[in-house]
């Protein structure tokens, strides 16, 4: 695999009580290679995202980003370095509108506190309006996010992460909660936005069709360990993977 190493996990371990959620995780994330993480429920996929974004601290092992050890940093410090995250359950500001959600993100990204300037007038507004267009949500800009259906909430959640102009974006099941007929369409929208913004993505996904279409690399998680890692062609046709993971999904 080529490309610069953007993030790397070295020997990462974490346990909750007796449950091993991550064991000896060693994996490299390459710039420009979208990585899909697949595996059964409870395999530790979300835990890995939590560790990579600073929400959980591993009991041993290290996380490197851009060559620097970031194991002990908080999520907000990692965000400042260029690691953003979208959530399985959309994490939105439920008392704000769609555009306001993005404006808050944009203001955070550019450290524009502007205590006496109305948020609607910050210079980043045009960019956010454009971003809304990119994720095909311009028509709902002034709707309160609390009123939106799940699929749109997912898109807004990802748009908020993109507003942070990250180098690396973690997405936890970006198409869960989206009707299966719309899944490809939604992911097309996201993939286009990612390409346009030149963001490398790591995403947890259950839908193998989606993985085949959008991932450059696939890693298989099982009981807190990475059991396989390679190109979608190799991994998704591997008999063990078909038996343990894909078989379960179908």
């Amino acid at each position: 695999m080529t490309g610069r190493v953007l993030m790397e996990a070295k020997g990462v371990d974490i346990r909750f009580g007796g449950v091993v959620a991550a064991h000896e995780i060693n994996i490299q994330i390459h710039e420009g290679h979208n990585l899909a993480i697949i595996g059964p429920n409870g395999a530790g996929k979300t835990t890995f995202l939590n560790i990579c974004t600073g929400y959980l601290k591993p009991h041993s092992g290290q996380i490197f980003f851009d060559g620097a050890d970031v194991t002990k940093l908080q999520p907000r410090h990692l965000v400042r370095k260029g690691v953003a995250r979208a959530f399985q359950i959309p994490q939105l500001f439920t008392e704000h509108t769609v555009l306001e959600n993005l404006l808050i993100a944009a203001a955070a990204q550019s450290r524009r506190w502007a205590p006496f300037v109305p948020m609607q007038r910050i210079p980043e507004r045009d960019m956010m309006v454009e971003l809304l267009g990119m994720v095909k949500c311009s028509h709902i800009a002034d709707r309160p996010v609390s009123e939106l259906p799940e699929g749109q909430r997912k898109l807004i959640d990802i748009a908020i992460a993109l507003a942070l102009k990250p180098k690396l974006l973690f997405m936890d099941e970006p198409t869960s909660g989206v009707a299966s007929s719309e899944k490809f369409e939604v992911l097309d929208i996201i993939a286009n936005a990612l390409t346009e913004a030149k963001v490398t993505a790591v995403f947890v996904e259950h839908d193998i069709g989606i993985v085949e279409r959008f991932a450059d690399e696939v890693a298989v998680w099982n009981r807190g360990e990475v059991t396989f890692h390679g190109t979608p062609g190799d991994i998704l046709s591997h008999p063990d993977v078909i038996r343990d993971v894909i078989g379960e999904e179908v």
Binding site: H96, E100, L103, I104, A107, A108, R112, W113, A114, P115, F116, V117, P118, M119, Q120, I122
Partner: peptide
């Protein structure tokens, strides 16, 4: 003004 500003919204 503060409550309407970016930091107020944050």
């Amino acid at each position: 003004r503060f409550l309407c500003s970016p930091i107020g919204n944050m």
